[in-house]
């Protein structure tokens, strides 16, 4: 079990600028006692992986509403693995069709949260993952 402070990177890859969801989640995670690093919009997978490394985060949360999740998410996972961060939990939020979600999970995304997911569910998921390992 991880005793230390849980650090989460919240990033918005791709070209859509709708970051309200990401900000709401960032705030909710902060209020749950996590240290949240917010990187802003229009991040490339390389930028996200680099920030995840420098910040030594336990969790990377991606918010994608542009429909580009099938290219962006696997790329982030791949970069994290190449740089030695295989243990980082990768979460995706957005409007993701079921068959895409299934495919992303086999590509290394740990969970996909669609519309209607509560902050509490996401917080519980992270806490469980950190305890269970």
């Amino acid at each position: 079990m991880k005793q230390s402070q849980i650090r989460v990177l919240i990033a918005k890859p791709g070209l859509d600028g709708h970051d309200r969801g990401a900000k709401v989640i960032a705030r909710a995670l902060r209020d749950a006692g996590f240290e949240v690093i917010y990187t802003g919009i229009r991040q490339t997978p390389q930028m996200i992986a680099e920030a995840a490394l420098q910040e030594d985060v336990d969790v990377v949360g991606l918010s994608i509403l542009s429909g580009a999740h099938m290219t962006l998410c696997p790329k982030v996972v791949e970069l994290l693995h190449t740089q030695g961060q295989e243990d980082v939990l990768v979460l995706l939020g957005g409007i993701i069709p079921d068959e895409d979600a299934a495919q992303l999970k086999t590509a290394g995304v740990h969970a996909v949260f669609g519309p209607g997911t509560t902050s509490a569910e996401i917080i519980a998921f992270i806490r469980n993952a950190m305890v269970g390992g």
Partner: peptide
């Protein structure tokens, strides 16, 4: 700053520093 209430923190300084990525 860390929130004295939740113990959490929102660290947003990177937003202004993205151009050094890479």
């Amino acid at each position: 700053p860390t929130s004295p209430f939740s113990g959490g923190a929102l660290l947003g300084d990177r937003v202004r520093m993205t151009r050094h990525s890479g």
